[in-house]
């Protein structure tokens, strides 16, 4: 299978997850872009952020038109995210994400168990 077809399948899979859960598209994109499509790991991480932005815009538009949305309630999250994203982007080249990912994994497992109970 050639590179464009792999990217098309990977993008579609990330869009499905993002559309249903409102998150998690990056968790599909990063391993598939690096291990299946053959991108360098840091490039896969950065490309996944770039792909998820327009995907989130389309999911957000469907959500807003379907549900309505109180934008004020999202302001603290958006401001925190803006600052966090800026810091994350600035230090990205200098950090190893290995241990951050382990800590992230534990929180996510906790969240998963709590969803099932």
């Amino acid at each position: 299978m050639n590179f464009p077809i792999k990217c098309a399948i990977i993008g579609a899979a990330a869009g499905i997850v993002n559309g249903i859960f409102g998150a998690g598209g990056g968790m599909i994109l990063v391993p598939l872009l690096s291990k299946w499509a053959g991108l360098d790991y840091k490039s896969a991480l950065a490309t996944s952020v770039a792909v998820i932005l327009p995907v989130s815009v389309s999911s957000a538009l469907v959500y807003i038109f379907g549900h309505g949305f109180d934008f004020l309630s999202a302001v603290p999250y958006a401001l925190g995210g803006l600052l966090g994203g800026f810091i994350g982007g600035r230090v990205f080249k200098k950090v190893s994400v290995k241990w951050m990912r382990r800590i992230f994994a534990l929180f996510v497992i906790y969240g998963g168990v709590k969803n099932l109970l």
Binding site: G24, G26, G81, L82, M100
Partner: peptide, 17 residues
């Protein structure tokens, strides 16, 4: 969201968290 924003910037699941 500041903390998860850093992870989102790295592409390791900040939104999920």
């Amino acid at each position: 969201s500041l903390i998860t924003g850093i992870l989102s910037g790295w592409g390791i699941g900040g939104g999920t968290l």
